[in-house]
Amino acid sequence: MIGIPDPAIWIGYVLAILSVIACIVYSVKNWNKSDDPAPDAPEREINWEKEEDKINEML
């Protein structure tokens, strides 16, 4: 196959290429999906900021 007779090598190439395709397909399918209910302004984010400010002030 494509000048490489050993299946142990070309299977490696096929798997590498399939992995890249899996990465692309995954990204495209989940482009706008997020685990967070509101990714742009989650409550935790604001709490984190407050905590951070408090610690910095304390220091």
Binding site: N30, N32, K33
Partner: peptide
């Protein structure tokens, strides 16, 4: 910021 960015990355 969110898992959406990881999905894209």
């Amino acid at each position: 910021r969110s898992s959406r960015e990881l999905n894209r990355a």
